[in-house]
Design a protein around this nucleic acid. Structure first.
Length: 468
RNA sequence: GCUCCCAUCGUCUAGUGGUCCAGGACGCCGCCCUCUCACGGCGGAAACAGGGGUUCGACUCCCCUUGGGAGUACCA
């Protein structure tokens, strides 16, 4: 039988890092075994579900390259199957109607809590006289009150639950809508899901769901509960920790391959290897190798991986993205200036993300409108100007405007003046880029072009050289 | 409170009774390379939560404590 996994988010918010990793593991498991990875939107809570959230989730998965098979399933459209399942249980005496009011339930729980027990429904409506069918009531599952339910988890191993800890959960609300635990079971079975891979926050639901599979006579899938991702301080990931939505990482200039690699290594490992291509991930991934401990999100390591993938990328492949980012920085024309692909090639190994790359490329297309104060004070002292002016004069007469020729010119000039290269390179860098940091000066000037280089130097002299 | 899960360097992890005075990676520190920033190279500091067992021998098995986390809804 072919392996089928699924990702089943509720469309009530963004696709966050934790959900993305769960989806990734589910996807990897399916792809590794040549099975299918399906997507189901759990929109039974009509109040909180939005179409916008659904779009964002699909968008995020696509960006990460987690492609799904078959049509997306919307849980709300399976209402009939959910109702049918409940009616079947009702007919077989495995479910019953409950007319308990909210007040009655609250009082019961308060009492239990006060007695130091776990608040749970005591099944009082199991034996109570039936109320009027047209009065609001819910339908509850008649759960076994003895024995144990053992979850054979692919990550955690056997987890034993005493059936007495599991109360009669509501299958259908008083408005006739199915609840989560019922809907999940019916839908997973209908979709032919063989492996349920989800966050560890669902572990406590699993024994209840297993009981439902049994009661409904449905084939039991295998389960794997993935430890949650925590923020750097060990607490649950939240906005407080910065970015949590995958779209935020896209905007910040992270590459999907880096994100996938990072997420995979969070909780999963293969010996000492850190960098994995998608293909390697698919070949090597095994849920059973996922660790049991919750991992903390480490921005530094993500940055390192992203820088790694950025360096490895072809400049051409980054061009469209960088162009869009430059436009956002006010650079609308990258055609008449230096070749963008060459600029990217110079910057990609010195940037951690595409946002940094774009801002580092900006000066190639826009002359500095101001100069870094600190850098000016440090590198453009009075003694620097003669050197700069010599350079400008000789650069104008340089035969070939190539990085090599520029390098020879600068080093020759420095030698004649008896100074290190930095004494000339830094002043030029500031005049040309506005600050003390740029790609190597020879390559920078070569790409910028002779005319533009000399124009900026002249402008800089006018703006910064003290009048004598 | 109750139920369940977890516990190796700051972080992600390797380790499945002896090969571990615990390995890799990120980060950090130092040195080298160097026109800046990066990259790269070399080196360094840094961990088995605590206590009991089991065993000839425990990071590895069991129990307890402590510490984290999840669940405890007519949310999913």
């Amino acid at each position: 039988m072919s392996i089928r996994t699924r990702f089943a988010p509720s469309p009530t918010g963004m696709l966050h890092i934790g959900g993305a990793r769960t989806a990734l593991f589910s996807w990897l498991h399916a792809r590794h075994h040549g099975g299918q990875f399906l997507l189901r939107i759990e929109d039974t809570d009509r109040e909180r579900s939005t179409e916008e959230a659904t779009r964002v989730i699909l968008d995020g998965l696509q960006w990460l390259g987690l492609d799904w098979d078959e049509d997306v399933v919307f849980q709300s459209r399976n209402r009939e199957a959910h109702v049918a399942a409940v009616e079947k249980l009702l007919a077989e005496g495995k479910a019953y109607r409950c007319w308990c009011s909210k007040e009655e339930l609250d009082a019961m729980r308060a009492e239990q809590r006060a007695a130091g027990r776990k608040p749970m429904y005591d099944g009082r409506c199991r034996h109570r006289d039936a109320g009027p069918l047209d009065a609001p009531h819910v339908i509850r599952f008649r759960s076994p009150d003895a024995g144990q339910t053992v979850v054979r988890d692919m990550v955690l191993g056997d987890v034993v639950f005493d059936n007495r800890e599991l109360d009669d959960l509501i299958l259908m609300r008083s408005d006739g809508s199915p609840t989560y635990n019922l809907a999940v079971v019916v839908d997973d079975a209908a979709m032919g899901i063989t492996h349920v891979i989800r966050g560890a926050d669902h572990l406590n639901n699993t024994p209840r769901q297993m009981q439902l599979y049994e009661a409904l006579g449905l084939p039991m899938p295998s389960f794997a509960h993935i430890p949650l991702i925590h923020g750097p301080d060990g607490a649950k990931m939240s906005k407080r920790h910065g970015a949590v939505a995958v779209t935020e990482y896209r905007e910040a200039g992270y590459l999907p391959d880096a994100m996938v690699n990072y997420l995979a290594r969070l909780g999963w490992s293969h010996g000492d290897q850190e960098v994995f291509s998608r293909q390697e991930l698919i070949e090597l991934f095994d849920v059973r190798d996922v660790g049991k401990t919750a991992a903390r999100f480490d921005q530094d390591k993500l940055d390192w991986l992203n820088a790694h993938y950025l360096r490895a990328a072809s400049p051409e492949a980054l061009a469209d993205d960088v162009r869009a980012r430059l436009a956002a920085l006010g650079v609308t024309d990258t055609e008449s200036g230096p070749d963008l692909v060459r600029a990217i090639a110079l910057l990609q190994e010195r940037s951690r993300n595409l946002a940094e790359l774009a801002s580092g490329a900006r000066f190639f297309y826009a002359a500095p409108d101001e100069y870094d104060d600190k850098a000016v004070r440090k590198h453009l002292k009075a003694s620097a100007w003669p050197l700069v002016e010599d350079f400008a004069r000789e650069a104008a007469a340089l035969e070939d405007w190539t990085a090599e020729a520029i390098h020879v010119l600068i080093s020759g000039l420095c030698e004649r003046h008896g100074v290190k290269m930095g004494r000339l390179a830094q002043p030029i860098r500031i005049l040309v880029s506005g600050g003390p940091v740029s790609p190597p000066i020879d390559a920078t000037l070569a790409l910028l072009g002779r005319e533009e280089t000399l124009r900026r130097i002249r402008r800089g002299i006018e703006a910064l050289k003290p009048a004598v």
